[in-house]
């Protein structure tokens, strides 16, 4: 162990961890329900994953293997620095391989590889309240959750179809958890929504600025809202990955020059690298 002396394991003090774990347990007990918690100051600004870090710090043990992704990539600034942070304050092993990780902190994506029961997925959440654009009063949104009064969310989807001919919401697409609570899946692409349904891994959501934690326990039903005649459809760019050729994965559009050149590559860098390696080995 190479944790720096003078610091608690994984940065956060034990009583804070206890408070956060209680919130997590409550969240697990009430799937999809937003549990308030006493969000602490973290050594990075709001919007950079303060909620996710606090959740990760509270569940991390010395034997865990941590993976951090930002928009699917392990090598972006946010992912690199959070990984480095936990390596330094907790001394845990880190990895870029989805299959090797026991805890995966993510911003805006779910890995392409199916997760397992021995893994936990921690989402960074900017705005936990799915109704906030529709109902400005927080007290009223709480009441709507308490009473499962969610007609308004369907009004939003109705307006989408009326205006655009289809449901135009392509990320942060609202879901019903266990048939009871309306939940924001965080700004993941709607493409990832089906992966949340009955996922074997525990899913935890941390919103640092908004001071909310919520959870989806393993194998919980997560249904994307839709209409019978306008069913939910996960959408991806209709291309193959330029690097690995995948036609299943979620793609990022990359601008390659200033003359309109572009290519589509997997947003999940680990998935893409693995496929490229397999292809190279086969050749």
């Amino acid at each position: 162990m190479n944790a720096q002396t003078g610091y608690n394991f994984a940065y956060v003090d034990e009583s804070t961890k206890r408070m956060i774990r209680r919130a997590i347990l409550k969240g697990v007990a009430i799937p999809g329900h937003q549990v308030p918690f006493g969000s602490r100051e973290m050594p990075l600004p709001y919007g950079w994953g303060t909620g996710g870090i606090q959740v990760t710090a509270s569940i991390l043990g010395p034997s865990d293997v941590l993976k951090v992704i930002d928009q699917g990539a392990d090598d972006t600034t946010n992912a690199v620095s959070i990984r480095a942070f936990f390596r330094r304050v907790a001394g845990v092993a880190t990895t870029e391989r989805t299959a090797e990780a026991t805890v995966i902190q993510t911003r805006h994506r779910i890995p392409e590889h199916a997760l397992t029961e021995r893994q936990i997925l921690v989402y960074q959440v900017p705005m936990p309240e799915p109704l906030f654009r529709l109902e400005a009063r927080v007290a009223e949104t709480k009441r709507m959750h308490a009473l499962a009064d969610y007609g308004l969310m369907h009004v939003k989807l109705y307006e989408d179809i009326a205006r655009h001919g289809h449901i135009a919401t392509s990320y942060n697409y609202p879901v019903m958890v266990d048939g009871r609570y309306l939940m924001s899946p965080s700004p993941i692409p709607a493409f990832d929504n089906p992966k949340m349904d009955r996922m074997p891994a525990l899913q935890l959501f941390g919103a640092g600025r908004e001071k909310r934690i919520y959870a989806v326990p393993p194998y919980t039903a997560v249904r994307s809202l839709d209409f019978e005649d306008h069913p939910f459809r996960p959408i991806r760019a209709p291309h193959a990955c330029t690097l690995c050729g995948s036609r299943e994965s979620y793609l990022d559009e990359v601008i390659t020059d200033d003359r309109g050149g572009k290519m589509f590559v997997c947003s999940d860098t680990d998935y893409c690298a693995e496929r490229q390696a397999a292809k190279a080995a086969a050749e």
Partner: peptide
Amino acid sequence: RMGVSAGGNIGERLMATGARHYGNI
């Protein structure tokens, strides 16, 4: 709801009581 279309305003109570067929609403 002044920011919601006439159709959405009328449909809200239907949706709140479980209507889930866009065409019918």
